[in-house]
């Protein structure tokens, strides 16, 4: 187990290093730097002035050197200065990540139980009418990306012209204080898209477990059907979905960005969009690194969790 962990952590560190280098290179492209120079000084700089400014600020040194410097700096907690917010990146990132964490928490609370229930109910009697109906619901949910369901939900529940007018179409006020009224729509929008995929995985895994020998034995012994499902099948059927739920994180990030833009909730996704659209190189770089590290960490957790949940897998 220790060897496995060390190997995984080593691979993860290597991946993180390569990926952050790629991000560093992509955010520090020649045209980006030129734009930065013009933003920092004045917009009608001549090419020579741009070149001399870049030279003075040290942007002309080899990429690898600058990357190494950035890694050392970032390691000591200094993530640079945001040009968009005129503040240190590290002090901006924290509160935004916390807001997104709250959003993710509620999304998970809504999405995971719904998806598992949907999948287990559909998979316990494969091919039945319940199965067909619920599977179609799951397929429909995977076909509805956040920017579509968000628009539809806002029209139905929050539009001031038509619809029910129950909820708010903006989640800006949720940053201070979360209420059902301002947070239900963003959470529902995000949960809807991810739900179908997890439900389908759960269904497939449940259907497979239900054909296993020990389930048949339990049936022949006369154990009641609900008891079979809850007591015998459920734990084994939930191994595969666990991995899937953990691997959903990179997908959820896209959802976070869309939902936070759509509902104007100023979290991490919103920050990423601000950084990218304002050519805020240091901020975008830090956001990217956070995103990549989160993805890699969830991959690691899913691998370890898989081993713990499934005693048949032995790692050396």
């Amino acid at each position: 187990m220790i060897g496995f962990l060390v190997k995984r952590l080593g691979l993860m560190a290597l991946t993180a290093l390569v990926l952050t280098f790629v991000v560093f290179a992509l955010t520090n492209l020649e045209p980006n730097l030129e734009k930065l120079a013009k933003e920092q000084n004045f917009s009608r700089m001549s090419d020579e002035q741009v070149a001399s400014w870049l030279e003075k600020e040290g942007y002309n040194r080899p990429l690898v050197n600058r990357y190494a410097e950035w890694v050392i700096q970032a390691g000591s907690g200094d993530l640079g200065q945001s040009t968009r917010f005129r503040e240190p990146v590290a002090s901006i990132l924290g509160p935004r990540l916390w807001l997104t964490a709250k959003l993710m928490f509620w999304v998970m609370i809504v999405m995971v139980p719904c998806a598992l229930a949907l999948g287990v109910l559909a998979g316990m009697r494969e091919g039945s009418r319940t199965d067909r109906t619920l599977s179609t619901v799951a397929i429909a949910s995977t076909a509805t990306p956040e920017y579509v369901s968000g628009v539809i939900l806002v029209t139905i529940f929050a539009s001031s012209a038509v619809g029910l007018k129950w909820l708010k179409g903006s989640a800006t006020s949720a940053a201070e204080n979360i209420t059902f009224e301002n947070f239900a729509l963003p959470v529902a929008t995000m949960a809807l898209y991810g739900m179908g995929y997890i439900a389908r995985m759960t269904r497939a895994s449940m259907a497979e477990v239900m054909t296993a020998q020990y389930i048949r034995t339990a049936r022949l012994k006369g154990v009641s059907f609900p008891r079979i499902v809850v007591g015998h099948a459920l734990r084994n059927a939930l191994i595969a979905p666990f991995t899937v739920i953990m691997l959903q994180f990179p997908w959820l990030l896209t959802g976070v960005v869309i939902v936070e833009t759509l509902f104007n909730y100023k979290g991490f996704g919103w920050l990423l969009v601000e950084a990218a659209s304002n050519n805020d190189i240091e901020l975008l770089l830090s956001c990217s690194v956070v995103a990549v590290v989160v993805v890699l960490a969830t991959q690691l957790i899913s691998d370890i969790g898989y081993v713990f949940l499934n005693p048949r897998i032995r790692v050396r």
Partner: peptide
């Protein structure tokens, strides 16, 4: 391991 949205923000830009 790259979040798709990030890749797009890095790759599909006028710069």
């Amino acid at each position: 391991a790259f979040p798709v949205i990030l890749l797009f923000y890095l790759l599909v830009t006028p710069e």
